[in-house]
């Protein structure tokens, strides 16, 4: 089966021309539809860079290699085009958007994506119903959805709002960037439940995390270790446990 996300020999640098610094250095990775892959790695390994390069944030320059989603090269696309193709990033640090209420924001995004795909807009009643259902699943207060996006939200609220958006927009491929950071155990469980509810044979997921903790709740099919800009080791779910026990140094030492 052809993998849903296929990254081949990807290299990328960050910064202006004169001071560009290579972060990703020949990274290759395949994620088939229906699977959840975890990427673990020490600080500075390039984990967040990978999520930004895949979703098209400016300031990152692809210097080699390719990344395709369902066979289409995504690296030349605008961020919004990638989103319309089904790529969703749950941000490590969700951004505050003063003055734009959550509902307005998500509906605008949903309709923009639908338009880009040649679909009809969602009707207001349908949208509200869907929103109500999702909010209920996630235990979100309806009042929160009327407030400006992420403004004045706690760390846990922000992460739950990312999952809310994910469930509303129903993307094909999810990238979760350090979704567990800043969460207490209850919030972590709610977030994980949301993500697990999204697991589907037609959907792929990349879970980026520094700690094994999140993977207790979101069981990965594969675990990859990212260091110095490339995947240096791939294993089953138990690799995460080994990393936890032996530390990155132990596992990396063995790979080197």
């Amino acid at each position: 089966m052809r993998p849903m996300l296929k990254i081949t020999d990807l290299s990328a640098a960050v910064g202006e021309d004169s001071e560009a610094k290579t972060i990703l250095n020949g990274l290759s990775l395949d994620v088939p539809a229906g699977e959840v892959h975890a990427i673990m790695g020490p600080n500075g390994a390039g984990k967040s860079t990978l999520s930004y390069v895949l979703t098209g944030r400016s300031g990152y320059e692809v210097t080699g290699g390719s990344a395709t989603l369902n066979g289409e090269n995504v690296l030349d696309m605008d961020p919004e085009t990638r989103a319309a193709k089904g790529m969703f990033l749950s941000f490590q640090y969700p951004v505050e958007i003063p003055g734009v209420p959550v509902m307005t924001f998500v509906r605008t995004a949903m309709n923009a994506q639908r338009k880009a795909r040649g679909e009809d807009e969602i009707s207001a009643p349908d949208f509200i119903k869907k929103s109500r259902d999702v909010a209920k699943t996630l235990n979100l207060d309806a009042e929160m959805l009327k407030r400006p996006v992420n403004v004045g939200f706690s760390g846990g609220e922000k992460k739950r709002l990312e999952i809310y958006q994910m469930m509303m927009l129903e993307p094909k491929f999810l990238i979760l960037d350090e979704t567990d950071s800043g969460l207490d155990i209850d919030a972590l469980k709610t977030v994980a439940d949301g993500v697990n509810a999204m697991r589907d044979p037609s959907r792929g997921m990349l879970v980026i995390t520094h700690y094994q903790r999140l993977l207790d709740y979101i069981k990965p099919d594969k675990v990859h270790v990212l260091a110095k800009g490339r995947i240096i080791k791939t294993g089953e779910a138990d690799l995460a446990l080994r990393l936890e026990k032996e530390g990155y140094d132990g596992v990396l030492g063995e790979a080197a």
Binding site: T55, R57, E80, F88, I97, Q113
Partner: peptide, 8 residues
């Protein structure tokens, strides 16, 4: 970027 990542 946040808005564009959501498809706007």
């Amino acid at each position: 970027f946040y808005l564009r990542q959501r498809g706007i």
